[in-house]
Design a protein around this nucleic acid. Structure first.
Lengths: 131, 131
DNA sequence: CTTGACCTTGACACTGACGTCAAGGATTAC
DNA sequence: GTAATCCTTGACGTCAGTGTCAAGGTCAAG
């Protein structure tokens, strides 16, 4: 019932380095065997899965913390807690900000390009709209 | 006709550190006085202005290089050279990529939020379209 | 007994554009 | 003369999440 870090890493699809890093930042934990080796159980696997899912979705490790704590406190999903939902909302606002910034920046660059290279008309497709 | 780094920095609106950094990376240059002090003339001021403009627009220092060289070779604007235009195009493609990524990510986060918090409908305004 | 696979902690490398401090020389103002 | 300000180079810190190496302990198979 206890796996060591190598197996955990394989099963979770992450590096052992990543697991130690998550632990160092208090997101996961592990018992220690008499030899000092980390021993993990299945529950930690779910936590790591949650972390990976969030990281690949653009969240930071800090963002992942409330989700992990939500899972640890017995909830079925990491986003069953208000703190997690708050992170969703904050992230959504951040994304909207970033998108607005990039869209504005794109317009500027396109304008510069048009000015520097008349005839270099640029077309782009964003959500079914031609620009 | 020659100003030192402090005055140059004030006039260009950048730090002396930034000027040394640009020089270190070969983007600007300066004569040296007998005491070892850098001495700048007006032409360098234009280069720094170009660099700042590009950096604040989201370009990297490397991106700025062709623009600076374009100016140095006597052109009225930094984007009068094909290399600069190529950078514009590449940047445009990068921005489109990033925007697409962020928009997709936003949709995922919004979906998660909707699932985790029914009734938390989120509205956003992107270019006159309500979502 | 030895090889080899696994584990441990610690610590440097990376990316970019600087900020900031250190230690020292030059210049200017009074 | 001396304090204040300016200049020089060099080098570490920042942010994030690892990759990677170092130096060593542990353990099962042969």
């Amino acid at each position: 019932m206890g796996m060591r870090i190598g197996e955990m890493a394989r099963r979770a699809g992450v590096s052992t380095r990543a697991l130690r890093y998550y632990e160092q930042h208090g997101l996961i934990s592990a018992r220690r065997g008499p030899n000092g080796y980390r021993e993990y159980d299945e529950s930690q696997l779910a936590l790591v899965a949650e972390i990976r899912s969030l990281l690949t979705a653009g969240f930071t490790l800090e963002d992942a913390r409330p989700f992990v704590e939500c899972l640890r406190s017995g909830n079925a999903t990491g986003d069953s807690c208000p703190e997690s939902v708050a992170v969703y909302r904050r992230k959504l606002a951040e994304l909207d900000d970033q998108i607005r910034t990039l869209v504005a920046r794109r317009a500027e660059v396109a304008a510069q390009l048009a000015g520097a290279c008349p005839g270099c008309t640029v077309h782009v497709e964003i959500r079914g709209r031609r620009t």
